[in-house]
């Protein structure tokens, strides 16, 4: 079963998500639409040959920081602002 795309997805439960496998600077992500936040795949740096393929990923949905919170003041620092969705203990298959 695929979860509906929503920013208010409840976390800490097993979910099955469908989307496009993409690479991001902080790791591999599942993209489920231009307006939806990415879902990072814990422990996976890049998708390799699966990049740009449609995939289904099963894992425990969590919300966490993936980098230290970057400064947005006059001395900006490097990182991902805020929390992100993260899939723990994930497994996947191509569609």
């Amino acid at each position: 079963m695929s979860e509906p795309a929503s920013e208010s997805m409840s976390t800490e439960r097993v979910v099955s998500l469908r989307g496009t496998a993409r690479n991001a600077h902080a790791g591999a992500v599942l993209v489920r639409g231009e307006q939806e936040p990415p879902v990072y795949i814990a422990g996976l740096a890049e998708w390799g040959e699966l990049a740009d393929r449609e995939v289904e990923v099963v894992g425990v949905l969590s919300e966490d920081r993936i980098t230290p919170e970057p400064s947005t003041g006059p001395l900006p620092s490097h990182g991902v602002p805020g929390t992100i969705h993260l899939l723990l203990d994930a497994s996947w298959r191509t569609l």
């Binding site: 600077h25 936040p37 980098t67 490097h78 990182g79 991902v80 602002p81």
Partner: peptide
């Protein structure tokens, strides 16, 4: 203005 795409890293130099 050093803004990030939501959910992603802000930049890479």
């Amino acid at each position: 203005r050093y803004r990030a795409r939501p959910g992603y890293v802000n930049f890479d130099y």
